[in-house]
Design a binder for these strands. Structure first.
Length: 165
DNA sequence: GCCAACGTTGGC
DNA sequence: GCCAACGTTGGC
């Protein structure tokens, strides 16, 4: 079982959209390293932090929830669609360049675990997303880091906080 | 909106 | 195969 971090621009496709759609093919990845992660290492059942990049003051950059890998890698059909913004003229039907996996909604956090918090937490040292110039849209995450983010998110959930004094 | 960092392209 | 030019990403 592997853990991941999947980026999306919050203004483009958010965790709320994910919650509405339930399950989507994660198309449009046009980076070889990210593709290789999907093709070679992602397995159905893997869990991924859903990260909003390019945040604002109101909607800060950070982890907004969790999704689950729901299929093996398969051909990303948008590469052949001339009208799609991720159309790739170099890709041929008989030898597709790009693949994607399906991902399924798991949960939306009550409040995001922000990038500022991630950077400030010594327990999250080494997370790729902390490094400047880290542009990879799909990144592996250690089990330790994954569960610590989950813990931070649970602490923000009022329902998750004990009422006992 | 700026700009540094990065990946990709293409001329040689 | 090198590397400059270019386009894109993403934090700030």
């Amino acid at each position: 079982m592997n853990y991941w971090l999947i980026k999306s621009e919050g203004t483009c496709y958010s965790i709320a959209d994910m919650g509405r759609d339930t399950r989507v093919p994660w198309t449009g990845i046009r980076n070889y390293q990210a593709r290789n992660f999907m093709r070679d290492q992602m397995q159905p059942g893997d869990l991924a932090l859903f990260y909003h990049s390019n945040g604002t003051d109101k909607e800060p950059t950070g982890v907004y929830g969790v999704v689950q890998v729901a299929s093996k890698a398969h051909t990303d059909e948008t590469q052949f669609d001339t009208k799609d913004e991720h159309y790739d003229p170099k890709s041929k039907k008989e030898a597709p360049l790009w693949q994607c996996v399906d991902i399924a909604f798991v949960e939306q956090y009550a409040a995001p675990v922000t990038l500022a918090e991630i950077k400030g937490d010594p327990k999250l040292a080494g997370m790729a997303v902390r490094e400047r110039g880290s542009r990879l849209s799909i990144q592996p995450v250690s089990e330790k880091h994954f569960s610590h983010i989950q813990k931070l998110a649970a602490q923000k959930n009022p329902r998750g906080v004990s009422k006992k004094k």
